[in-house]
Design a protein around this nucleic acid. Structure first.
Lengths: 180, 180
DNA sequence: CCATAAGTGAACAAATCGTTCGGCAACATA
DNA sequence: TATGTTGCCGAACGATTTGTTCACTTATGG
């Protein structure tokens, strides 16, 4: 991809996430993004169809990173018990989230966070699906899967509002309050 | 309140929640609400400053109902153990939520549900604050409170998308997956 | 050096918003 | 019933924002 394209795309993302930290998504104007990113109007629309497309693209980009390079292969090599797999998996994801913090803080300010939260829940549900085979008697598997996914997503949101915790600590909090 | 006012307000709420079941909040136009509610433009703005004010009013109205008539007084008369208090409290709230289902289904369609979910989390946090005094060692009380509140709110959202469960069953699911 | 691709910025129509105002209908009170 | 008040109507308006177009400059890579 052309260097100019990357720069523009990056500038727009940066301007946008910066604005998200200050005001809710709905009240952000394309004009404001343009000015802050120092980018022409037609340039913006050459990159993104609408403001909605922009936030969708941003969410996928981050989600792709957060759930990239999963140590799934490595994890299956661990025969010492089921517990360690999960801890490794979760911690791994949390490290990637920590790297994305600059983008996520604004994105998760609850007025506009719904989109990424939904993406997060969806991906976590897939990722942790295998771990949930156990189940709890009397509780629909459906409910349980949703419960764990929401729980994880909300943990991430809480984390983004409360820095000063390590991925390992967050993982511990999550496991201490959620039955897996 | 004047009968005309009540009718108008009710018509607007009904039109609005109906539209919310069909399309996301952001894409709903004041004009659409007017037509569906069969109400004049100036009338709408006489009742609500903006579309945002409308959804805020709707959320508070529902929340007020859901958390009304709490059996807090009655619950303290229960000396048979701590467990029953919580069950009674939660079930009571869930019954009120069930009554509000017609309004909530649209309101919680995740594209626009953030506002009511936030309200719900906030109220639940207050409501269940007393029950959380126990805590879990190594987990911040802050995290725990948020965890339980989110958990309950997400349970409600799941419930609205999965009818055919009674408040008692939902309460059981909630308690089976969440440490209180 | 040149052809291609990307960015610029002004100008545009269209949609939506929130307000205003004169007139009509419903309500409450005497 | 008569009357004053309150709410609703709906057309019209200016203001904002949106997304597109176009003629132009500038950067990139062969």
């Amino acid at each position: 991809m052309d260097r100019r394209q990357r720069k523009t795309r990056e500038a727009i993302f940066a301007a946008f996430t910066g604005l998200l930290e200050q005001k809710p998504y709905a009240s952000i104007t394309v004009q404001e993004i343009l000015e802050r990113a120092d980018v022409g109007r037609s340039t913006f629309y050459a990159h993104f169809e609408t403001k909605d497309a922009l936030i969708v693209a941003l969410c996928s980009e981050i989600a792709d990173h957060v759930f990239s390079g999963d140590p799934a292969g490595e994890a299956t090599h661990d025969f010492s018990g089921a517990g360690k797999d999960v801890v490794a998996l979760i911690t791994h994801i949390l490290y990637h989230i920590q790297e994305s913090r600059p983008y996520l803080v604004g994105l998760l300010k609850s007025s506009s966070g719904e989109l990424f939260m939904a993406e997060l829940r969806h991906r976590v549900a897939q990722e942790l699906a295998a771990e949930l085979s156990a189940g709890i008697e009397g509780v629909p598997a459906d409910y349980l899967a949703n419960h764990v996914a929401c729980d994880f997503a909300e943990t991430v949101r809480w984390w983004m509002a409360h820095p000063d915790y390590s991925p390992e600590q967050i993982c511990a909090f999550f496991l201490a309050t959620t039955r897996l």
